[in-house]
Each structure stands twice: as C-alpha cells, then as structure tokens.
Write a protein that binds this DNA or RNA. Structure first.
Lengths: 170, 170
DNA sequence: AGTTTAAGTCAGCCTTGTTGACATTCCAAT
DNA sequence: ATTGGAATGTCAACAAGGCTGACTTAAACT
C-alpha cells in the first residue's frame, strides 16, 4: 500500500478526504447510484419498444419545448443519425410533434404531444420518487453538497446546457 | 405550473429542496455529471478495441482480486454471455488471469496481470483526477453530502456490493 | 448564382446487452 | 456408482443505440 498524503490521524480534514481510497469510493458510489437512478425508467420503457435514448430525447424536449434538432443534438452529444432514428419513432408514435420554423423554415421545432407529456411525466416521476427519497434520507445540507460536487464534475461544455445554475441561483 | 409545497419564498429550506424543480435539477445534474465521469476512460479505451464493459470488469477484479465469475456477474448485473465475451478478450490479451479454484474446481478466480493492473491504473487515475478536482472545488462538507445522497439513492441490493460503507465507516 | 446550413435518409459497422440451447466439469447426495 | 444440480463456457441469433460516410432537399445567406 502506498502511503499517500493525509493517511495518518483524523484531524486533517483538508487532506484526508482526498486519499485515493476516498476517491475510489466516490467513483464506485457514482457507478452504483447511476445504475439505480436509471433502473426505474428503464423498467417502464422496456416492452414499449423504447430505450434510454428515447427517454433522454423526451426529457430535453420537455424542458425546452420548441427546441431545434441541432440544439438537441448538441445537448445529447450524439450524431444526427442516432437521434433521428429515435426521433422518427417518437413522431410516428405521436409522442413528439415536429413543426417547421417560422423565421427559418429549415429548422424543425420539437414539442411533446399530450401523449408524449404523459409518458415524460411517468418517467420523470419514477426518477423524482427515488431522488426525493434519497434527498429526504440525506437531508438538505447533503443535497447542497451533492449538487455542488456534481456541478464541479461536469465538463464546462456540458455545463452550458445545465439549467440548474442559471435558474435557481439567480 | 403546479404549485407544489414550499414553492413560495426562500426561507423554507426544509421544503424548498424537495420541489419538483429542485428534483429535476438533481436528475439533470446526475445525467451531465455521469457523462463527464465516464468520458475520460472512454477516451482512453477507444482505439484499444475495448469499451466501457471492459473497464467495469477490470475495475471490480482489481478491487476484489480472486473474485469468481458468478460474483462478478451479480455485481455487474449482466448475463454471463455478455460478461464472458468481455472476459475472454481480456484473458486472450493477457490483462486478466483466470485460475481454477482449489476448493471448488468449477469456479474460476480472476486476477489482473501486471499489464491489466497498469491499464486499470491508467483508467482509474483519469477518473480520480476528475473527482479530485471536483472534490477540491466543492470542499469537504460538500463531498460528505455527495456521498450520503448517492448512498441513499442506491438499491439495497447494490449497496451490498458497495465497499464505501463497510470499510470507511467501521 | 453559388455556398453554407439544417434536416433527413440510406447503408454498413461496432459494442454491448439480450435469449435459448447445449456441453463440460465437478460436488454432493442418494 | 449413479444421478442431480451448480458453475462455467460456448454457439447462434437478435436488438438497441452508438458510430462513419455519402448523398438529397430545402432554405438562407452573401
């Protein structure tokens, strides 16, 4: 075992929480928590011939109704071919509506239909329920720390798309 | 907009952090942070004809050297066919060693070779670097909260496999 | 008029998950 | 000793959802 900095004593909080072992536990916590976090929606989607990709599209169209395909592309970080495959089935099934842009007719603006909004709510409620339970169990201060670490972990590029910073911190 | 509990004012911390909007931001933070969290190892693995599945196998073999295939299966939550495909290439490439069990010769015990340990270190160091930076930026109290929320979010089933609780909290 | 941009489409490939069927090896119990 | 069950491995087929490359259409910009 390599003896990293801060491995002795327990008073040096500033160093202790940065040992490799602490970091490894954080990494593992992310792995198991994210797995649980996606399990509930996955369960709902399976059998509907939808997957996680459909969930992501629905989620961001719900947050930013009228978003263009290009914008969605940059948020999701996938190719247009990948997104298109997903979007096509959602439009065919009447969960998403694609409207030609008024100012720029090349653009398509995306909206959830009533059925789409209903599925969105079902999916997000499953996730909210788990998050709500975790928040209650951990308490408000833990939640603030949770958010702060996650935000610090994001790429600056991705942080642009993240609505948490813009709104609730104004 | 439905007006949930605690949606007015800003003093009611006890309720405010459980509004649907706060929960939604937590959900989104998980999405973007996890994306960033896996981006670095993914970048290393691409081109090596390895993927995230190889990373996961290597990670858990490193944590629990000598683990059996069945045990790994239950941690990773995939089918043996899926895992076997990944394991086979890792063994062929000399990153993982499979030793027949002494007590029970049906079992195979898995170990990282030197080359496997080297790749593991490279991958985990990339993740540790990001986590270290996020921890430094957020501070020790935030880290404790981060861990507490993630642990509360896990399924009890998964929590059994999570080493953070057993060791550091004795 | 020519170029660029937004969107969509077709074809093909890869990784990683799934089922189902089946072989092998070994332990344990009858 | 034979049989049943457990652990492992393997083959085949399939699906989701990423990817690249090539190409079209329509609209906008210059």
């Amino acid at each position: 075992m390599a003896d990293g900095p801060g491995s002795q004593g327990h008073g040096g909080e500033l160093l202790l929480y940065l040992t490799d072992e602490q970091l490894r536990q954080g990494i593992e916590a992310m792995f198991f928590a994210y797995r649980a976090f996606t399990a509930d929606p996955d369960r709902i989607l399976q059998g509907l011939h939808y997957g996680r990709a459909h969930h992501r599209a629905i989620h961001f169209i719900n947050i930013a109704p009228g978003t263009t395909v290009n914008n969605l592309l940059s948020i999701l970080g996938v190719t247009k071919q990948s997104l298109n495959r997903v979007l096509r089935t959602l439009i065919e099934d009447g969960l998403v509506e694609s409207r030609v842009g008024r100012a720029d007719k090349r653009e398509r603006h995306l909206f959830l239909t009533e059925a789409g909004a209903a599925l969105e709510h079902q999916l997000s409620e499953a996730q909210r329920a788990r998050m709500r339970a975790a928040y209650r169990q951990a308490g408000p201060e833990a939640v603030a720390g949770f958010r702060r670490v996650l935000e610090a972990m994001m790429d600056p590029e991705m942080r642009r798309h993240y609505s948490g910073l813009r709104e609730a911190r104004g």
